[in-house]
């Protein structure tokens, strides 16, 4: 089992996440959305990278959290931290309910199933336009700030908030991964039929992992809602589910930092490419993905690790 203690490189990494405040203060809004996406990818990593549950409908929980946070801010109160908790709970409840069905399937059936749930929820949100605002997005709320810091145009509070939430969730995820439960999940991923033989309740473990991932995805959605004061159907869309999968594969699944690195690279590349060429930037993103998949089949982190091990 890997050493559960923080390695020096990790301290460096998290110290670097503070750099945008000093080095690129005009990119803080982007940085806050990178942090949200990284958190979302982290949640997918828990189920895909560690438990082996392939999902093409993970945006369902992201959107659930986003809409819950938005509805609370609209109808009840605009204090974000408590809103975050409620959003986490609502996404968790949804995750728990769905987990009973989802964990019974593997591979292709699983992809179809998660995708189906995602589409159903997106369509439900579209139809319930009285509640969600439908295609126009949820309107009529504004989250002024967090703990007295204003969510302004420069995005300082937004990034600080998103980063803090990402870091806390990361610590939780890290703790889970290095626990016996985390080890059991990897066991299930490697051989689902063998795990019960050593007395591991496979389905219960998977349900738990799926619910935890749903909670974290819901938190990510809520942070996006709070920092932008917008919620739209896009938070539930298939595109978002697919994007986060691509991000995770790009960074390296099953590596905890894979989603974070993937999110940084994907979103920054997207921002730069689309800045240079707003019409045809998808070409370059596509090229980047093809290159990564061809030369670094285990993602960027997987590639780096292989590189480090080679000399021996």
């Amino acid at each position: 089992m890997e050493n559960a203690r923080f390695r020096p490189l990790e301290y460096v990494f998290w110290a670097c996440t503070l750099l945008p405040f000093l080095v690129t203060p005009s990119y803080l809004s982007l940085a806050s959305q990178v942090a949200v996406t990284a958190l979302f990818a982290l949640s997918l990593d828990l189920i895909l990278g560690y438990a082996g549950i392939v999902s093409l409908g993970h945006a369902a929980f992201f959107g659930m959290g986003a809409y819950t946070a938005g509805l609370i801010a609209k109808h009840y109160w605009t204090e974000p931290l408590s809103g975050l908790l409620v959003a986490a709970v609502s996404a968790g409840v949804l995750g728990y309910l769905l987990s009973h069905i989802v964990v019974r399937f593997r591979h292709l059936a699983l992809i179809m199933l998660t995708m189906g749930f995602g589409l159903l929820l997106a369509e439900a949100a579209n139809s319930a336009s009285a509640l969600t605002g439908g295609a126009d997005g949820l309107q009529g709320f504004h989250v002024p700030g967090v703990l007295g810091f204003k969510f302004d145009m420069f995005g300082r509070a937004a990034y600080a908030y998103a980063l803090a939430v990402l870091f806390l969730c990361f610590l939780v995820a890290r703790r889970i991964i290095h626990s016996p439960f985390g080890l059991a999940l990897r066991g299930i991923r490697e051989n689902a039929t063998r795990m019960p033989a050593i007395g591991a309740p496979t389905l219960a473990h998977l349900r738990k992992a799926y619910t935890i991932a749903a909670v974290i995805a819901g938190i990510a959605g809520a942070v996006l809602t709070h920092t932008t004061s917008t919620v739209s159907l896009e938070t539930l869309s298939f595109g978002r589910s697919a994007d986060v999968l691509v991000i995770l594969i790009l960074g390296g699944a099953g590596r905890l930092y894979g989603g974070i690195i993937g999110a940084i690279i994907y979103m920054v590349a997207r921002d730069q490419f689309s800045g240079v060429n707003p019409q045809y930037w998808y070409f370059w993103i596509g090229l980047l993905l093809v290159a990564v998949v061809m030369f670094l089949p285990n993602g960027i982190l997987g590639g780096l690790r292989a590189l480090r091990k080679k000399p021996q």
């Binding site: 997005g137 932008t228 004061s229 739209s232 159907l233 896009e234 595109g239 800045g275 707003p278």
Partner: peptide, 14 residues
């Protein structure tokens, strides 16, 4: 010009 990429208010706002 900047590309929003579809109905995405969070991106449009940023």
């Amino acid at each position: 010009t900047k590309d929003v990429g579809g109905p995405a208010p969070d991106v449009a706002k940023r």
